[in-house]
C-alpha cells in the first residue's frame, strides 16, 4: 500500500472517529438555510424563487468552514514533513487529501441538500438539477479550497484569510450551480450549466494539485 492510499485510509478512519469533522458542516448548512426565511420572508412562493441560490450559497459556506482544518493538523504534527520525506508525489497526495475532504464534506452535503431544499419549497422539477449540480460542483469547491487551505495552513487564525482568498474563485461555480437549479425549477434546459461545471471540474482536477503541492512546501518550518 502506498503512502497516498494509506493516508486516504487513515484520514477516513480519523473522520469516522471524529464525527464532528463531517457533522458540523452539515449542521451549519442547515442553520444557514434557516436564517433566510427568518430574516427575509417565509412565504412559500418567495422561498421557492430564492431556494436555488440560497441552498448553493449555504453549501459553499459550509464547505469553506470545513476547509480550514484540511492541512492544519498535518502541518502541525509533522505529517507533512513525512510526506515530503517519503519521496511520493505531492500531486497525488494533494488529490488524495481533496478526495477525503470531498467524501466528508461535499458528498454528505450533496446527499442532504435535496431534503433541506424541501424546507425551502424548491420546485419539484429542480431536485435532480440540485443533486447533479452539487455532485459536480462540490468537488471543485474542495479542489480550489485546498489551494487556499494549503496556503494558509501555517498562518495562525487563517480561517478568515482562507475565505478572503478563496471566495472570489468560487463565483463561477456559484453562478452556474445556482442557475442550473433555478432553470430546472422554471422548466428550462439546464444541461449547459452542468456541462460548464463538468469541464471546470476537469480543469481544476488537473491544475489545482500543482498549486496545492507548491503551497504545501511553504509550510515546512525552516
Amino acid at each position: 500500500m502506498s503512502l497516498v492510499t494509506a493516508t486516504i485510509k487513515r484520514d477516513l478512519i480519523i473522520a469516522a472517529r471524529n464525527p464532528g469533522e463531517w457533522l458540523n458542516p452539515l449542521m451549519f448548512f442547515l442553520m444557514v438555510l434557516a436564517l433566510f426565511p427568518l430574516a427575509v420572508d417565509p412565504d412559500p412562493k418567495f422561498l421557492s424563487k430564492i431556494a436555488a441560490g440560497v441552498v448553493w450559497v449555504a453549501a459553499l459556506l459550509a464547505t469553506l468552514l470545513s476547509l480550514d482544518a484540511l492541512f492544519k493538523a498535518d502541518v502541525e504534527d509533522g505529517t507533512l514533513e513525512q510526506w515530503l520525506a517519503s519521496g511520493e508525489s505531492l500531486y497525488a497526495m494533494a488529490l488524495g487529501k481533496v478526495f477525503v475532504h470531498w467524501c466528508i464534506s461535499g458528498l454528505p452535503l450533496t446527499l442532504v441538500a435535496p431534503l433541506l431544499a424541501l424546507m425551502m419549497n424548491l420546485p419539484d422539477d429542480a431536485y435532480a438539477a440540485l443533486f447533479f449540480s452539487l455532485l459536480l460542483g462540490t468537488p471543485i469547491l474542495s479542489l480550489l479550497g485546498a489551494v487556499g487551505a494549503a496556503l494558509t495552513a501555517g498562518v495562525r487564525s487563517g480561517g478568515l484569510l482562507l475565505s478572503l482568498v478563496i471566495l472570489p474563485l468560487y463565483i463561477p461555480i456559484l453562478i452556474f450551480g445556482a442557475s442550473a437549479v433555478y432553470h430546472a425549477g422554471i422548466g428550462m434546459e439546464y444541461a449547459g450549466q452542468l456541462g460548464f461545471l463538468a469541464s471546470f471540474l476537469c480543469i481544476s482536477m488537473t491544475l489545482t494539485p500543482f498549486a496545492v503541492a507548491g503551497a504545501l512546501k511553504l509550510n515546512l518550518s525552516r
Partner: peptide, 17 residues
Amino acid sequence: ILSLVGLVNIPIIKYSV
C-alpha cells in the same frame, strides 16, 4: 502561487459573470 491561480481563473470568472 495565489496570483497565478487567480490569473487562470480571471477569464472563467469574466465569462461566467
